[in-house]
Design a protein around this nucleic acid. Sequence first.
DNA 1: CCTACTCAGTAGCCT
DNA 2: ACTGAGTAGG
Length: 671
Amino acid sequence: MELASFLNAQQQQAVEHLKGPLLVIAGAGSGKTRVIEYRVLNLIANGVPPGQVLLLTFTRRAAKEMLSRAAKRDPKAAEVEGGTFHAFGVKVLRQFAGHLGIKENFTVLDQADAEEALHRCATDLKFYEGPNRFPQKASLQKILSMATNKRLAIGQVLEAEYPNFIDCRPQLEQLREVYSQFKLEKSYFDYDDLLLYLRLLLGQEAVRVHLGNQYRYLMVDEYQDTNLLQGEIVGLLGAEHQNVMVVGDDAQSIYGFRGAYHQNILDFPGKFKNTRIIKLEANYRSTQEILDLSNGVLGGMEKAYEKHLKSAEGRQGDKPKLLFFKEPAEEAVFVADAIQEFYHQGESLYEMAVLFRSSYLSFHLQTELAKRRIPFDVFGGKKFSDTAHVKDLLAFLKILANPKDELAWNRCLMLLPGVGPKTAQKLIGQLVGRSSLVEMKAVFDTLGENAKYKTQSVKWIKALVEAQSQARDLGEAYLFLLNAYLPVLEDQYDNWQQRKKDLEMLAQIAARYQSIEELLTDFALEPPEREVSEVMGIYKEEGRVTLSTIHSAKGLEWGNVFLIGMIEGLFPSAYALKSDEGLEEELRLFYVAVTRAKSRLFLTLTHYGFSGGITQFNKPSRFLDQPGIQSHLESPAERTSPAPKPELPKIGLNKEELLAKLAELYQAKGG
DNA sequence: CCTACTCAGTAGCCT
DNA sequence: ACTGAGTAGG
Ligand SMILES: Nc1ncnc2c1ncn2[C@@H]1O[C@H](COP(=O)(O)OP(=O)(O)OP(=O)(O)O)[C@@H](O)[C@H]1O
């Protein structure tokens, strides 16, 4: 392989470094991802069996992309073990399940499932009955998760983030214990458990040696967004052989809310003695104008970064533009117009992205694009699998996979009219004592005739039994369940037809899987993004515009990028303004956003916004006031201040007059 | 005792 | 739009 034709000198050094610890730390667009790709190939070319290489990435998508690109040059690269820390945790945990007395087909709880489970434990412990306020389920999950990922005591998390709940510390500690027991008993693992148990297993000398021998070469991408727990995992996985390469950019650490510890990357050389450090200097992605702005963003940070982004090839282009609009609909029209214009100039839709801080900022644009039949994909925000009806059907599938899944039963039973928490619990008490669906059927068959939920629940258990015994594949099994669920769906939702379509689409996805466990695990670890109608029409050539949160755009690049919603309180987010670190992370997020663009970059905002049911005046993001940023933006000569509201015309109508006018209008005029 | 309904308050980023 | 609190009613 002639590396020199694909890599610069520093990249080659990194790719040719095969043994011992290596840290590649470099700015955005400097070719870090490319280094990983070629290092995988180089390891294989040097005789390393691909199965001995472990590549941990931030999303499963990233791992898949890197490995499939590498596999084009050497098919063996496809055999490399790649995925997220969480996915790797699942894999290892399934291998060792037998030794830990847990079911091999354990269920992975997503965040909402974990919240439900926590809520149940807290309710059982009667923590909501006392006179003191106890955190809501979402906060419970966040507090415990933060403690796990940052390796902090619950008290420390409370002090730092939830001082108002500081008195709940003993209860929260008890809750964590009960919740852990509950999960272990039922073979549930939430996201944090996947890391925690992996860490626990690696704490066993024998496991550490075993995995160290199995995976002789470890690579970690986006290392700046790993947390302390993941840092420990890397330390243990690499302890045997020290062949650990981590890659990242400390200025791109944007997952603090998930416990990311950007110091991890700076501490790496301390953890692994004799670490070789390689810095990549040249940027291959963007024009110098875009990089000037990026450098301006870096310059606005508290922390001084020595890096200075410079285009490798001296690429020149337009200065990034800052544009103001009256309201979101107008902003959407501008973006859609520009997309169409670029498309007609010959740009592929794949080279266009619209980025935003929060997913709801894209709603207007979604409407506008759909209206114009411009195909697009949405990343980030509410997932397809977060919607109630999809979760309902997944609960049925969970029961099919594991008839003793109490949380799934609870969700399903609560859908029955006449069944609330108490009845559901009572039924579950009877159900879990039985070992199969067929035996469970008796519970419903023997219900008193006056139980109004009897008919429906008997239909359900019948469908479950049939799905288990008669279906030839998962697609068929799914249809049994869907048909049983439909009456309740139609009852529950006004827009059931739309939801039914979603569930039919889920049928297609389900049919692609061999086993339910696989499907459920995939849905938990990498939920499908919200599907968007397959609009065709005038855009025959393939290609789709990307609409993405900045977080989900990490590591990606496009020729044309629109960053919308540059509004104070939205970006930087009001939540983040509470602390200096919060604001600093927003700036890093801004840096990530602008460095996604190769050639053209637009920042937009609107004067009016809509929030909490009222129209508001927006203030431009404070980022735009920073001189180092402003000077690299081309904006309208004068900043159009919000148009003053026109004076209201004076009219005076009293109640009688109003009623008389109303009566006039009520005069029927239609056919 | 339990469920179903109404109302008020709030709305982030992800595995 | 969606959640939790509070209350009316089975
Ligand atoms: N040596 C090179 N010569 C030419 N182009 C390169 C070279 N290295 C990388 N590139 C290209 O530069 C762009 C950015 O590279 P890459 O995605 O690897 O950067 P990165 O450092 O991972 O960026 P980020 O930190 O934003 O994820 C890609 O389009 C890549 O193909």
